[in-house]
């Protein structure tokens, strides 16, 4: 990851300007770093404990920025950026679980309790991800708040800093988003073509 920060600096700057495709482009760099750190921790913990997502984002940031005397990227922007990466990692994983299940890779294995829970979680996560995309298409700000709070595990204050909005707006938006997503997931109508505004 020695050369990554240079690249990331440019991409993060573009991301900060609202260019979400920059995030897509830079994701593999963060993604690898997330894996590396989580993997190391998992070995340390023997897989017994799950890392808390907030500290994972912090650790990734600290690692990537280490050795750079000048701030190579805004910490705030990085937090949102890493949260998006986390969402992708988790959704990928959930899709993978579904693929394995469909592909019959585990068909003859009697699924144990843990595997069934994983499988159930992956279904929920994919549904939530889809609902979130619907929400994001209509209200990008609420999407960002959910990414930071839920996937990135950021606090209200960190989210406010990352998105350059007030903590009060974060709290409000987070409430609205949760109520909307929950309603949506429970089968509430969300016909996008229908004008409701």
């Amino acid at each position: 990851m020695r050369t990554a920060p240079e690249n990331l600096t440019t991409l993060l700057a573009a991301f900060a300007q609202g260019d979400r495709s920059a995030a897509e482009e830079a994701l593999p760099l963060v993604y690898e770093e997330l894996r590396r750190i989580a993997r190391r921790r998992r070995w340390q913990w023997g897989g017994q404990e799950a890392p808390h997502t907030t500290s994972l984002v912090h650790e990734v940031y600290l690692h990537l920025s280490a050795g750079h005397s000048e701030p190579w990227a805004s910490r705030a922007h990085f937090f949102h950026f890493a949260s998006v990466a986390m969402r992708n990692v988790l959704v990928d994983h959930a899709k993978h679980i579904q693929r394995v299940k469909r592909g019959g890779g585990l068909q003859r294995v009697e699924l144990n309790e843990q595997a069934r829970i994983s499988e159930q979680r992956s279904v929920e996560l994919l549904a939530l991800d889809e609902a979130l995309s619907t929400l994001g298409a209509q209200e990008p700000r609420l999407l960002q708040i959910v990414e930071c709070r839920f996937f990135g595990g950021l606090t209200v204050e960190e989210t406010a800093e990352a998105l350059a909005i007030s903590p009060a707006s974060v709290k409000r938006g987070w409430d609205t988003a949760r109520a909307w997503l929950f309603h949506h997931l429970r089968g509430g109508h969300s016909d996008e073509s229908q004008s409701v505004g």
Binding site: A38, R41, A50, L56, H93, R121, F150
Partner: peptide
């Protein structure tokens, strides 16, 4: 559950 899911998702 997301936190627990992480354990499996990342490494």
């Amino acid at each position: 559950s997301l936190r627990l899911f992480w354990e499996k998702a990342l490494p």
